[in-house]
Amino acid sequence: MPRLELNPNFTDPDAFYAALTDAHRERSEDESERINARLILLLANHIGEQQVLEEALILAARDAEEAR
């Protein structure tokens, strides 16, 4: 069973962060939300494994609750 990769796995995290912030620069809040939603769906499709996606959702929701 595939597991969610939680160890750093970026080839260039700084470049990804720069590209992500550039994609949002000078966008409205609604446009940024659409970008994020589309990015999530594209990456979820790439991952494809339901169990991995559900694990990611559980962790993201838990982390959001802990941040309150």
Rank of each mutant, 00 (worst) to 15 (best):
D63C: 09
E49D: 15
V52M: 07
A19N: 06
D22F: 01
H24E: 02
E54A: 06
L43N: 05
T21I: 06
L4V: 03
A19S: 03
E65I: 10
E26S: 02
A64V: 14
T11Y: 11
L6K: 03
I47A: 06
A23G: 13
S28W: 01
E33V: 14
A15Y: 02
H46G: 06
L53N: 09
L43M: 07
G48S: 13
L42S: 10
M1I: 07
T21V: 04
N45V: 09
I35P: 00
E65F: 12
A56D: 08
L41H: 13
A23M: 02
Q50V: 14
E66G: 00
L43Q: 11
T21L: 03
L43I: 07
L57Q: 13
I58T: 00
F16V: 00
N9E: 00
A15S: 00
A56S: 07
D63L: 03
T11I: 11
D63N: 11
A61W: 15
A44F: 09
A37L: 08
D30S: 01
H24P: 07
A18W: 02
N36T: 03
L39H: 12
L20V: 08
D63F: 08
N45I: 12
R25Q: 05
A56F: 07
N7C: 13
H24A: 04
E66D: 08
R3V: 05
N7H: 13
L4Q: 04
A60D: 12
L42M: 09
D22C: 01
I35T: 08
R34Y: 15
E54H: 14
A44S: 15
E31D: 14
S28I: 01
E26A: 05
P13W: 08
R68E: 15
E65Q: 07
E49I: 08
S28P: 02
L43T: 09
P2G: 06
I35Q: 07
S28K: 03
A64Q: 13
A61E: 12
L59K: 14
A56M: 10
L42I: 09
E66L: 09
I35W: 00
S28F: 00
